[in-house]
Amino acid sequence: MDTVKNWNKWANNHTYYPLDILRIALGIFLVLKGASFITNSQYLDNILSPLSNFPGGMLTFHYIAAAHIMGGIMIALGLLTRWAIIAQLPILFGAVVINFIGDLDVKNLVLATVTLAVCLFFMFYGSGKHSADYYFKMQQ
């Protein structure tokens, strides 16, 4: 627990607006991606086709869409950012791996890899000073 507190102190002392804009952009991107999966379910079905024998396909579809939309909103607001990113990690690892199992789509691979890298960064960095987490922490 002390390690997380030390990371938060370091992050709050080194917070810059571009990092906050990057966090907000990541959240908006995830919300839009989740909405895209809901409106175009055939696209998600095509992506998950290499795992067609995997049981729980509908559960996976709903988890991906809900985690992207709800997690994206939370990341954009800076509310429980680390928990929201932890919910994104299995999806993003799966997005990177599925490109090697199925047809290799370089655009999707780069997009998934960059999103995963940004999420891993914010998992360690935290939400920063300009976030709901920081606001609520200061209200205590």
Rank of each mutant, 00 (worst) to 15 (best):
D2E: 14
V4E: 11
N6G: 10
W7E: 08
N8D: 14
K9C: 02
A11L: 07
N13L: 15
Y17Q: 14
D20F: 04
L22T: 12
L22F: 10
R23P: 02
I28S: 09
F29N: 12
L32M: 14
S36T: 09
I38D: 10
I38F: 11
T39N: 14
N40A: 15
I47P: 01
S49G: 03
P50M: 12
P50I: 06
L51G: 03
L51N: 01
F54T: 04
G56W: 05
Y63H: 05
A66N: 01
A66R: 02
A67W: 14
A67S: 15
H68G: 06
I69S: 00
I73V: 13
M74G: 14
I75D: 02
L77M: 09
G78Y: 06
L80V: 09
T81Q: 00
R82T: 04
A84V: 07
L89C: 11
F93A: 06
F93D: 07
A95C: 06
V96C: 08
V97D: 15
G102S: 05
G102V: 04
L104H: 13
D105E: 10
K107V: 11
N108P: 03
T113V: 08
L116S: 12
L116V: 08
A117Q: 11
L120P: 01
F124M: 09
G126I: 07
G126M: 01
S127R: 07
S127N: 04
S127E: 08
G128L: 05
H130I: 09
S131M: 08
D133E: 00
Y134K: 12
Y135E: 10
F136H: 06
K137S: 12
K137E: 13
Q139P: 03
